[in-house]
Write a protein that binds this DNA or RNA. Sequence first.
DNA 1: TAGTGGTCTAGACCACAAA
DNA 2: TTGTGGTCTAGACCACTAG
Lengths: 234, 234
Amino acid sequence: MTPGAEKADWTAIRRDLLGRIQSGAWRPGDAIPREVELAEQYHCTRSTVGRALRDLATAGFLERRRKGGTTVSANPVRKAPLEVPIIADAIRRSGHEPAYRLLETGWLPPPPGVGDLGGLDPDAALIFLSALHLADAAPHQLEQRWLNPAAVKGLRQSDYATAPVDEWLLNNAPLTSATIDIAAVPAPATVASALNMTTGAPTLRITRISWKQTLLIGILHLYHVDGFSLKTAI
Amino acid sequence: MTPGAEKADWTAIRRDLLGRIQSGAWRPGDAIPREVELAEQYHCTRSTVGRALRDLATAGFLERRRKGGTTVSANPVRKAPLEVPIIADAIRRSGHEPAYRLLETGWLPPPPGVGDLGGLDPDAALIFLSALHLADAAPHQLEQRWLNPAAVKGLRQSDYATAPVDEWLLNNAPLTSATIDIAAVPAPATVASALNMTTGAPTLRITRISWKQTLLIGILHLYHVDGFSLKTAI
DNA sequence: TAGTGGTCTAGACCACAAA
DNA sequence: TTGTGGTCTAGACCACTAG
């Protein structure tokens, strides 16, 4: 799309601008034309080029400042959209048949090393459950969960005996905020045996701590089978 | 912000709508009012509520379909913005003093297990370099890089002897696309000794494969010191 | 202070998918 | 077929900030 030709469409403009960046015509640190100029070049309004520019800016390719203008990012590779694999849905989308097996339930204090718990007593007993997620009958993830009873009133064991507790949570404590932490850790013995690994072997652990405002909902540990990796693209 | 009061502002509308979702007033699967109705409630135009709705949709809270209307996501916890820690910049932003030490250079074939290389001969010799990134004089990341000589013509060893090769790449092969892969692997002996770990101990490995269109630029392995974790929030 | 991006309006037409 | 979101326009005013 040569500027000056064709009809405006913010995705086309976005593509064209990105092409100029990736081809090196505009280099990191360069200032690019003002919105009004681009609008003239593309025969459209400022709103339309603005949409394309804003999109490239949130994607990290451009930096914009009032009065300072728009420049090509000097440090572009920063944010990647990570699709955190939350259980069954992720398995199903990868083309495998998911299954769920509840392994253990009880009451336990929160695991060590998870940081701030929003004022919760670190020795307080939380609802604990551990469950295995399988893909095509092979172990895939081991889930360990600590739930704050004050935040999940009404939850019964039958709610997670045969199906992941996510379904109950979704309907009863929906759409909370969360922090996510990804680390490589040696597999504890219980984890290793459930996932057919050797104790101490590297496993990818995703920790998710969920909140409803300042109230802790729960802590989730997901341990992944050997060979699993998170994939994304930028 | 009660709908019907105050002045419109798409961020305020976004906050208000998100509040209705997170409070449970609108539950997963629910249909929410049409744009025209919301525009009336908030005393603004359809464009403005549209901006708020679009933003919540890209964040994963809403799903929108022409004619089908807008519904609250039934499976909200999906995408998290992952800030991939690419070297010095990340260290500096975390408040530490970065340093760089080139360990080894030479020619090597690409590492196994990285999948498609865009037609590159899997035995072809690539420019190889390995370097250590330190934070406050302590090892932080070990970088191993394979660069396609056809994609980095003009690169000399002096370009990465004392500073990360990223700086040269940024100016000479800028703003490529990339795939990212995050895995827990046992530390190879060379990695372990550089990072003061024991061989075979779990280490978080980030693999980034960079492309310029279909041309492979290079492969990057980042091995992280024990105790490191990626953090994000949703 | 002046110039740039950020936002909002009021209206129009279009594209897609549900009924 | 028809209702919904998706987009574009032409214009205006505002907010931030570089000079």
